[in-house]
Simulated scan of single mutants.
Amino acid sequence: MTTIYGHRGAKGEAPENTLASFQQCLGHGVRRCELDLHLSADNQLMVIHDPSLKRTTGRRGKVVEHSAADLATYDARKGGPGWVSPCPVPRLEELFEKCDFEHWQLEVKSASRTRAATTVLAIREMAQQFGLLDKITITSSSREVLGAALELTPDISRGLVAEYAWLDPLKVAQNYDCNLLALNWTLCTPERLIKAQRQGLHVSVWTVNEPALMRRLADFGVDSLITDFPGLASATLENR
């Protein structure tokens, strides 16, 4: 049975990585999500995809140059689907408080060794506080991040984000003792999928927005789909 993850909440329906987007996802009955994390200047976990503020808030500078309190006042509606009310950049803590997801893929972008360590430890502390240790997977394409997670937060599951096939993703996933593989859908051949699942990996493919592709990947037997349109995905897979 293929499950559905909302990509950055419901990126195709509401401004990505905002509370409105995650609420939209839950509104479709989709109770799994994927999001991106960066640290603020004061080491708070902020939910935003890019290291820079430009694309989603129109502001200058990098996330890491601003305090969490300031970031929480910036409107992140820019460049997304139209939305009536302002959508601030959320803290991860706010989403943990307000959104009842059964599983979270928390993607940590590449970081220096020190920042990777700070980030995974902050995730662990926050997840423990909310009793979510068994409901999250720290995912990354960065070896620094996966290495830090394996070493410092071994009790939290890990996932490799694989966008390109130049390195064997299955080997890399094995090296960091991952149990999830977030695979770019273009890399998801039936052979690679079967091999990954035999290796004990949950294979989550992204970003899948076309109904025909959703059906095809579900027929292949992928464990989950990450989509900008969780409502559409839910309707598509229910009708099979």
Score class of each variant (00 low, 15 high):
1 M>V: 14
3 T>K: 13
4 I>C: 07
8 R>S: 04
13 E>I: 06
13 E>Y: 05
20 A>C: 10
21 S>Y: 05
22 F>L: 04
23 Q>N: 07
23 Q>D: 04
25 C>G: 03
26 L>E: 08
27 G>R: 11
30 V>D: 01
32 R>C: 14
36 D>P: 08
37 L>N: 03
37 L>G: 02
37 L>A: 05
42 D>I: 12
42 D>V: 11
44 Q>K: 15
46 M>Y: 03
46 M>P: 03
47 V>D: 01
51 P>N: 13
51 P>G: 07
52 S>E: 11
53 L>A: 05
53 L>D: 02
57 T>L: 05
57 T>E: 06
58 G>L: 13
58 G>S: 11
61 G>C: 09
61 G>W: 06
62 K>Q: 14
63 V>A: 07
65 E>K: 12
65 E>N: 14
65 E>W: 07
66 H>I: 02
66 H>M: 14
66 H>K: 14
68 A>R: 13
68 A>Q: 13
69 A>K: 13
70 D>I: 09
71 L>F: 02
73 T>W: 10
73 T>L: 14
74 Y>Q: 02
74 Y>D: 01
76 A>R: 03
78 K>P: 00
80 G>W: 00
82 G>L: 15
83 W>S: 00
86 P>Q: 08
88 P>Y: 06
88 P>Q: 10
90 P>R: 01
91 R>C: 14
94 E>T: 15
95 L>F: 09
96 F>Y: 13
99 C>L: 12
100 D>Y: 06
106 L>W: 04
108 V>P: 03
110 S>K: 13
110 S>E: 11
110 S>W: 08
111 A>W: 00
111 A>G: 05
111 A>S: 12
121 L>F: 08
122 A>I: 11
123 I>R: 01
125 E>G: 12
127 A>N: 00
127 A>K: 00
129 Q>R: 15
129 Q>F: 13
134 D>Y: 05
135 K>D: 09
138 I>M: 08
139 T>R: 03
140 S>T: 09
142 S>W: 01
144 E>T: 09
146 L>D: 01
147 G>R: 12
147 G>D: 09
147 G>T: 12
148 A>V: 10
151 E>I: 08
152 L>G: 10
152 L>I: 12
156 I>Q: 04
156 I>T: 02
158 R>F: 09
160 L>E: 03
161 V>G: 00
164 Y>P: 00
165 A>K: 14
167 L>T: 10
168 D>S: 13
169 P>R: 04
173 A>H: 04
173 A>I: 04
175 N>G: 10
179 N>Y: 05
181 L>A: 02
182 A>W: 00
183 L>R: 06
183 L>F: 12
184 N>L: 07
184 N>H: 15
184 N>P: 04
188 C>T: 13
190 P>H: 08
191 E>K: 15
198 R>W: 07
201 L>M: 12
201 L>W: 04
202 H>R: 14
204 S>K: 06
206 W>T: 00
207 T>D: 00
207 T>L: 03
210 E>F: 11
211 P>D: 10
220 F>P: 02
224 S>L: 08
224 S>Y: 00
225 L>F: 10
231 G>P: 05
235 A>S: 14
235 A>R: 15
238 E>R: 15
240 R>C: 11
